[in-house]
Design a binder for these strands. Structure first.
Length: 597
RNA sequence: GGUUGCAUAGCUCAAUUGGAUAGAGCAUCUGACUACGAAUCAGAAGGUUUGGGGUUCGACUCCCUAUGCGACCA
């Protein structure tokens, strides 16, 4: 495709030289896809050329088009509408392009002048509660971006920085000690992460009762919050933890172990994985070394009370606290340490952080601080900032119990896929296990596509009913297109039709055929675009476009009723290539495809 | 209070980064299965791109301003 565009650009320059005596200024030599209401495939905008060529936009378009049609074999025709020159491509050229595509497998690495060694940090859960809908957007984004970058030939490490220490963890531990009666995930019959979450909620409930009690006794609200016995005990437990108290450490290991079992189960269910785990309990002390380094370099300064700060006002930010007066670390302290550690481990030229946009400011501070420290990897940090997920009822609020649990949601989408699929009655002959696998593939396909098709930067609305839909702009729509072609391939194999041949003798193509070839040829530039913008949404949109182009082709022409053997073979090959493209495209989103559905 | 992001069809989202008559899906209406898979396809209707100003051949896109919603910093 790049090659075809280059051919056209060269030809346009030749035309300009022949007709106007000069080339087209590089900035104006950009081709865009022709809008579908007009004939043609590529469009040159001629408005910007009027000054250089001293003619009106339409005259320029006519003159260039006329020359091209006469001299460039790849161009079969043209039309000019106002300042737009629409170029029509010869069918022989589409066939040549298709042959070029076929010379490489659909999943072949894509040309991209981007980072070669990448760390993508995502998921990064707290170990005091189970994953929810917001985490799902994070996990799907992180996994998908890692796949997309890998598709450009980069070496990608998927990292998970687990937030396994701190006051919030102590809260669920404390509540467990008080109210748990020694129950375990096995005895309670619930997943470990949900068990920890249960005690986190219990802590909050009793804590608020204590506050109310104190307030009734005449204590001011601000003071009550700090003096409530449970809070004091939680803080004491955190100190014991930092001191390495044996009993506390044992409990911590035990409860976190349960949580990890729960997380792993969820990760497996949603199809994400990691190459490297970091734990804040293992990195929070490293940050303090960076603080020492900053003080030594004179980049940080100490206030009278002993707290450490950095002044980022020149960068348009504020003064920022890096270490508390009592020497305990804040979030950014640990992040300084983890960034250094990741660089030591992987020497990345791009480090992606998949973190919600509520932390935009925090990430700016982190990057600016590392820059001031003179860290070579500071510029390589990229915050993949994504918007929050809202519900039809508004924001998710744990206080109000409106948080959508990830495990429950997965069960629901799989169940919805089961109902819908059984309703169609198309899968007789599939065994129990194959059916379960299919429902899972479809349910997760719907959910992932739904969460990934929206531009990551934008806040989005989660509508449960729409997330399990199978028609229209959805994951199952694309999966269906794949399954349809799978059926065609099976039949073609029975008939002994070869999947690749030389089609150059084919002659004229149907518009849906050349349209499909053009769509398939876009793959490489789409993936590069998605990598450049860290945006799975670009890939989702593309997969949908390909599926639509195929379905149009499928209804317009017949494959097996085609009398001409060569043309029949071409349509089978075109179908096969489409299926392969859909499979790799969805694969970049972490979505699998079924052979029948 | 300071900083910052967002606002597009009834609803959910696009718009190739400044290009044509702003496009899809859902919902609504119409048509296509005794044809390779109808989870499909074809068509209709739906818009003052939040309001107002500006920049230019051209603005959803850039600048200013007002309003509304969100986030962050204390």
């Amino acid at each position: 495709m790049q090659q075809l565009e280059q051919t056209l650009k060269n030809a346009l320059n030749e035309a300009a030289k022949a007709v106007f005596g000069q080339e087209i200024p590089a900035a104006s030599l950009a081709l865009q896809p022709t809008r579908k209401d007009f004939a043609g495939s590529f469009t040159l905008v001629t408005f910007p050329l009027t000054k250089a060529f001293g003619k009106g936009p339409e005259q320029i378009g006519q003159a260039l088009g006329e020359w091209l049609q006469a001299h460039e074999p790849a161009i079969s025709g043209y039309n000019v509408v106002k300042g737009f020159l629409n170029l029509e491509i010869a069918d022989a050229e589409w066939l040549r392009l298709f042959a070029e595509l076929q010379s490489q497998p659909a999943g072949a690495p894509v040309l991209f002048e981007g980072p070669r060694r990448v760390v993508v940090e995502y998921s990064s859960p707290n170990t005091n509660k189970p994953l929810h809908l917001g985490h799902l957007r994070n996990n799907f984004l992180g996994y998908s971006v890692a796949q997309i970058l890998a598709a450009t030939g980069a070496t990608v490490t998927k990292a998970n920085l687990v937030n396994d220490r701190g006051i919030h963890i102590c809260k669920s531990m404390l509540a467990y000690l008080r109210f748990g009666h020694g129950e375990t995930p096995e005895s309670a019959g619930i997943k470990g992460d949900h068990l920890a979450g249960k005690y986190y909620v219990l802590f909050d409930k009793h804590y608020r009762e204590e506050i109310k009690q104190l307030e009734a006794e005449g204590v001011a609200p601000e003071i009550a919050k700090k003096q409530a016995p449970l809070m004091l005990d939680a803080q004491k437990m955190l100190q014991q933890w930092e001191a390495g108290d044996e009993e506390i450490m044992a409990l911590w290991h035990r409860m976190n172990g349960w949580v990890y079992d729960g997380f792993n189960e969820t990760y497996r269910a949603i199809g994400v994985d990691f190459d490297k785990f970091y734990y804040e309990s293992g990195t929070y002390l490293l940050g303090k070394e960076r603080v020492e380094e900053g003080l030594a370099k004179g980049v940080f300064y100490k206030k009278d009370d002993g707290s450490v700060w950095i002044d980022l006002q020149e960068e348009g930010l504020d003064e920022k606290l890096l270490l508390r007066a009592d020497g305990t670390s804040v979030y950014i302290t640990q992040d300084l340490g983890t960034a250094e550690l990741k660089y030591q481990d992987f020497g990345y030229d791009s480090s992606v952080y998949v973190i919600g946009d509520e932390q935009n400011y925090h990430m700016q501070v982190l990057q600016a601080t590392l820059k001031k420290l003179g860290k070579p990897y500071a510029a390589a940090i990229h915050h993949l900032s994504y918007g929050m997920v809202d519900l039809p009822s508004g924001k998710m609020k744990s206080r109000e119990g409106t948080v959508v649990d990830a495990d429950e949601l997965v069960n629901e989408v799989v169940e919805a896929a089961r109902q819908a699929t059984l309703g169609k009655g198309k899968i007789e002959g599939l065994g129990e296990e194959e059916q379960a696998e299919l429902f899972h593939t479809l349910g997760l396909g719907a959910l992932k596509y739904y969460l990934l098709k929206v531009d990551p930067k934008k806040r989005m609305l989660f509508n449960p009913a729409e997330s399990v839909r199978l028609e229209g702009d959805t994951g199952p729509f694309v999966q269906y297109s794949y399954a349809r072609i799978a059926a065609i391939r099976r039949r073609a194999a029975e008939q002994g039709i070869a999947e690749t041949t030389d089609f150059s003798a084919l002659g004229a193509l149907h518009a849906t055929e050349s349209g499909l070839v053009q769509e398939l040829a876009r793959y490489a530039s789409v993936v590069a675009d998605a990598a450049r913008n860290y945006s799975p949404a670009v890939v989702a949109q593309y997969a949908y476009d390909v599926a639509k182009a195929y379905n149009r082709f499928y209804t317009e022409v017949s494959i097996f009723n085609e009398p001409d053997a060569l043309r029949k073979a071409f349509r089978v090959a075109l179908s096969a290539r489409t299926a392969d493209t859909l499979k790799t495209g969805l694969g970049l989103l972490g979505i699998e495809v079924p052979e029948r559905m």
